[in-house]
Computed example of a mutant assay.
Amino acid sequence: MKEEIRCGGCRALLFKCETNAVAGAIEIKCRRCRQINQLRPMSPSPSAVRAASGE
C-alpha cells in the first residue's frame, strides 16, 4: 500500500512511498510553497537500536 507524503505548509503532494520505506531522516523542499519539510521514520532502524544499546 502506498502512502502519500504531503507538504506541511500547503498540503501539496511531495511523493508516494511504500509504508515504512523511509529508513532515515529526509529533508525535502516543496516545489509549490518552498517550505522545507523534515521527515523521520516512525520507528528507529534495527541498526540504530543496536548501536544505542552498545552491541
Results as ranks from 00 to 15, higher is better:
P46S: 08
S45K: 03
R31I: 07
N20M: 05
R40W: 10
A51P: 00
I28L: 04
R31L: 10
Q38S: 15
A23W: 08
L39H: 02
R32L: 05
C30Q: 05
C30F: 02
L13C: 00
A52N: 07
I36F: 05
K2Y: 10
P44A: 14
V49C: 05
L39Y: 01
S53K: 11
A52L: 08
A25K: 08
V49P: 02
S45C: 08
K29G: 06
A21F: 09
L13G: 01
G8S: 12
C33S: 02
M1N: 03
R6V: 11
C30W: 03
R50T: 15
R6N: 15
E27W: 09
L14V: 09
E4K: 12
I36E: 06
A48S: 13
E18S: 14
G24V: 14
A25I: 12
L39I: 05
K16A: 09
C30H: 03
T19N: 10
Q35P: 04
R32H: 06
I26G: 00
Q35M: 11
E55V: 12
A52K: 04
K2G: 05
C33E: 04
V49N: 04
V49Q: 10
E55L: 14
R32N: 06
R11V: 08
S43L: 13
I28T: 02
F15Q: 05
R6D: 05
R31F: 04
N20F: 03
S43P: 04
M42I: 15
R6F: 01
A48T: 12
N20A: 09
A21M: 04
M1D: 07
A48M: 08
K16E: 15
A21P: 04
S53T: 08
R31W: 02
R50S: 15
L39E: 00
R32M: 12
S45H: 15
E3Y: 07
A52M: 06
V49T: 13
S47R: 05
E55T: 07
A52I: 10
A12M: 04
M1L: 12
L14M: 08
A48R: 02
I36K: 09
R34I: 03
S47A: 11
I28R: 05
N37M: 00
E18M: 07
L14T: 03
M42C: 14
A52V: 06
N37D: 00
I36R: 06
K2N: 15
A23M: 10
C17I: 03
A21E: 08
E3T: 13
S47T: 10
Q38T: 08
S53L: 15
A21S: 13
E4I: 11
F15P: 03
A21I: 08
R50K: 15
S45Y: 11
S53C: 11
E18A: 15
V49L: 09
C7H: 03
S47D: 12
P46L: 12
I28Q: 04
V22Q: 07
R34H: 06
G24N: 14
N37Q: 02
T19Y: 01
G54A: 02
S53F: 10
A21W: 08
G9A: 14
E4S: 13
L14F: 04
C10V: 06
A21K: 06
I36N: 03
L39D: 01
R11D: 14
N20S: 06
A12K: 02
S43M: 10
P46E: 07
C10G: 11
G54W: 01
A12W: 02
F15W: 03
R50L: 15
R32F: 12
I5N: 08
R40L: 09
L13A: 01
I5S: 11
I5K: 10
N20E: 09
